[in-house]
Simulated scan of single mutants.
Amino acid sequence: MTETEARALATHRHYKGGLYRVIGVARHSETEEAMIVYEHLWPHERGLWVRPAAMFNETLADGTPRFAPLDIPL
C-alpha cells in the first residue's frame, strides 16, 4: 500500500510517522480494560493490533501524542 492509499483510510498517525486506522474499542475479557483495536496501514505490512486505550491516547513526555488523530473530512 502506498502512503497516499493509506492516508485515504487512516484515522491516526503514530509519532514515528506510521499511518493507522482505528477499528474500535474492545474490552479485555479478564480485566474489562478498554483496548483500542487498530490496523497498521503504512509503511510496513498491514496488520491488526490492540493496545490499552490509556496507552493509545497518552501524550509522551515531550508533549507529543502517541497517536495523533488526522483531520477527516465530513
Rank of each mutant, 00 (worst) to 15 (best):
D71S: 12
A61M: 08
D62H: 00
P73H: 10
H14Y: 10
M35I: 06
R7I: 15
P43M: 02
V22G: 06
A8M: 13
M35F: 05
K16E: 09
A8S: 14
E32I: 06
H28N: 09
A8Q: 14
L48Y: 11
N57C: 00
I23P: 09
E39W: 04
V50D: 08
W49F: 12
E58P: 05
T2Q: 04
A53M: 07
A10W: 05
M1E: 03
K16C: 06
A10I: 14
P69K: 13
R13Y: 03
T31W: 10
P73I: 07
T4Q: 12
K16V: 12
A68S: 02
A8N: 06
A26S: 13
A10K: 13
T4L: 15
A34N: 13
H44L: 11
L70F: 08
E30L: 12
R66M: 02
M35L: 14
P65V: 04
T31P: 09
W42N: 00
Y38I: 02
I72H: 03
P52T: 11
H44G: 14
G63Q: 01
A8F: 10
P43W: 01
R13F: 08
L19V: 10
W49L: 12
I36V: 15
W49A: 06
A61F: 01
G17K: 06
T64P: 06
E33M: 10
T59C: 08
F67D: 01
E33Q: 15
I23W: 08
A26F: 10
G47A: 09
W49G: 04
M35C: 00
I23V: 15
A26I: 13
E3R: 06
R27C: 03
T59E: 14
T31Y: 03
E30S: 04
P69W: 01
T64Q: 04
A61G: 02
H14Q: 04
G47V: 10
A68Y: 00
A26C: 08
G24C: 05
H40F: 07
G18I: 03
F56H: 04
R21Q: 11
G47I: 10
A53I: 00
R27Y: 02
L9N: 09
I36W: 04
V37E: 01
T59S: 12
H40G: 14
D62F: 01
L19C: 10
W49E: 02
R51N: 09
V50A: 10
T2S: 12
I36T: 14
G47R: 13
A53P: 03
T59W: 07
P52S: 09
W49Q: 05
L60R: 05
L74A: 12
M1H: 13
E3K: 11
G24L: 05
V50F: 10
S29D: 07
I36E: 00
H44W: 11
H12P: 04
F67Y: 15
E45N: 15
R21A: 14
R21N: 09
T59V: 13
E45S: 14
Y38P: 01
E30G: 09
A34R: 15
M35Y: 10
H44F: 14
V22R: 13
R66H: 09
T64C: 11
E45K: 15
I72N: 01
E45Y: 15
T4K: 12
V50Y: 13
E39N: 11
F56I: 00
L41H: 00
